[in-house]
Simulated assay, not measured.
Amino acid sequence: MAGATETFYSVIRRQGITRRSFHKFCSLTAASLGLGPLDASSIASALETKPRVPVIWLHGLECTCCSESFIRSAHPLIKDALLSMISLDYDDTIMAAAGHQAEAILEETRAKYKGKYVLAVEGNPPLKEGGMFCIDGGKPFVEKLRSMAEESMAIIAWGTCASWGCVQAAKPNPTG
């Protein structure tokens, strides 16, 4: 996955976007947010100097339709979202690594970006029987979620499964 030391500007320049187009983007962004012309230069400065924010995407009990929809989206294309817009440093559903290697990447990302990563959560943590209905990396997903959430700067509940429980929360619900 992409490294979080790159800036948004360095990525789009590498892809052939001109400086003029970049400033047009910043002006349109400022205008769409109701900001003034001077704010466009502040947006440009931030995109040129600040590193892209790393994203850690975890999966609990879910139907996986959010990932499926994301992978098959056309606006934006997944390649554009992953290579230009965000720095997805961990997602066990779409990354090549698995098992111990994937867990090592997760811990490395967590340590390197402590307090500076966004945690995206697709799916929910089962709570009954100590969370034993969803084991991830050898431990209950609820433990992994709490641990990763403690050191994130923001958490996104991604989709219905994470927000409301979806099919997994239907009665009777033995997972809690």
Rank of each mutant, 00 (worst) to 15 (best):
M1T: 15
G3P: 11
G3M: 14
A4K: 01
F8Q: 05
Y9I: 06
S10F: 12
I12W: 13
R14G: 13
R19M: 11
R20F: 13
H23L: 09
G36H: 06
L38V: 10
S41L: 07
A44K: 00
L47F: 06
L47D: 06
E48K: 06
K50C: 05
K50I: 03
P51M: 04
V53N: 00
P54D: 07
H59Y: 02
G60E: 12
C63G: 00
S67V: 08
E68R: 12
S69L: 12
F70N: 09
F70T: 11
I71N: 14
S73Q: 13
L77F: 14
K79A: 05
L82V: 02
I86A: 08
D89Y: 12
D91L: 14
D91I: 09
T93L: 15
T93C: 15
T93A: 15
A96Y: 02
A97P: 12
A104E: 13
L106M: 01
E107M: 06
T109K: 06
T109W: 05
R110H: 08
A111Q: 13
K112Q: 08
G115F: 09
K116T: 05
L119S: 05
L119V: 04
A120D: 06
E122G: 02
E129S: 13
F133M: 01
C134G: 00
I135D: 03
D136Q: 15
G137K: 00
V142A: 15
K144C: 01
A149Q: 04
A149P: 07
A149M: 09
E150S: 09
E150C: 11
E151A: 14
M153E: 07
M153W: 02
A154E: 14
A154M: 07
I156P: 03
G159P: 00
T160S: 15
C161Q: 12
C161I: 10
A162Y: 09
G165N: 12
G165F: 06
A169D: 06
A169E: 14
N173P: 02
